[in-house]
Simulated assay, not measured.
Amino acid sequence: MTDVISLSIASWDQPCSAAEQEYALRALEWGSVLLFPQLRFSIQDGESRLLSPTIAGEGKNVSLDPSSGTSRGSDADEAELRLLRSMMQRFATSSKTLLHNLLPRYEAGLQQARTSFRPVEIAGRSTSWRKDDTRLHVDSFPSSPTQGKRILRVFTNVNPHGQSRTWRLGESFEGAARRYLPSLPSPIWGTSHVLNLLGVTKSRRSPYDHFMLQLHDRMKADLAYQPEVAQSVHDFHSGSTWIVFSDQVSHAAMTGQYALEQTFHLPIDYMLDSSQAPLRILERLLGREMT
Rank of each mutant, 00 (worst) to 15 (best):
Q14R: 03
R118G: 00
L81P: 02
A10E: 12
L34M: 02
F141K: 13
G124R: 12
G170Q: 11
H137M: 12
S246C: 12
P142D: 14
A123M: 12
S192Q: 08
S143W: 10
S275K: 13
R125Q: 13
S74A: 04
T93I: 08
R135I: 03
R288F: 04
L184S: 02
P145W: 00
L152Y: 00
T2A: 07
R82F: 00
M254A: 03
T166V: 15
T255V: 03
H193S: 12
T134N: 09
T263R: 13
R280C: 09
D247E: 05
R118L: 02
L103G: 03
L102E: 13
A76I: 09
G175S: 15
T54W: 08
M290V: 03
F117E: 05
L266S: 06
T70L: 08
R49Y: 02
V200F: 09
L195P: 01
A10Y: 00
A224E: 10
G109V: 06
R105S: 05
G256T: 02
S143P: 01
Q257E: 08
P227N: 00
E283H: 03
N157L: 05
E29I: 04
E78Q: 07
H251S: 13
R90C: 04
S275D: 14
G46W: 00
A24S: 10
Q231V: 01
V120F: 07
G162V: 05
D273F: 05
N157R: 01
R153F: 02
P142A: 07
S63N: 07
L7F: 02
A259V: 07
L35W: 10
R90N: 03
H210M: 11
Q111F: 01
L213H: 07
S48R: 14
Q38D: 14
P104G: 00
G59C: 11
R40L: 14
T166N: 07
L181F: 02
G31Y: 00
R168W: 10
L184P: 01
H137W: 06
C16T: 14
A224P: 05
A18C: 11
Q44H: 15
S86Q: 15
Q231H: 03
P119L: 13
P207M: 10
H210R: 15
R85K: 14
R26E: 07
L102D: 04
D3G: 11
L110E: 03
D247V: 09
A259I: 06
M212Q: 06
A177T: 08
W30K: 14
Y208F: 14
S63M: 14
A10V: 02
R178V: 09
Y106H: 09
L279Y: 10
D139G: 05
L64C: 00
T156N: 06
L102K: 09
R153I: 08
Q44C: 08
Q262T: 04
V4T: 04
G46L: 15
V138C: 01
R40P: 02
P160Y: 01
D222F: 12
N196H: 11
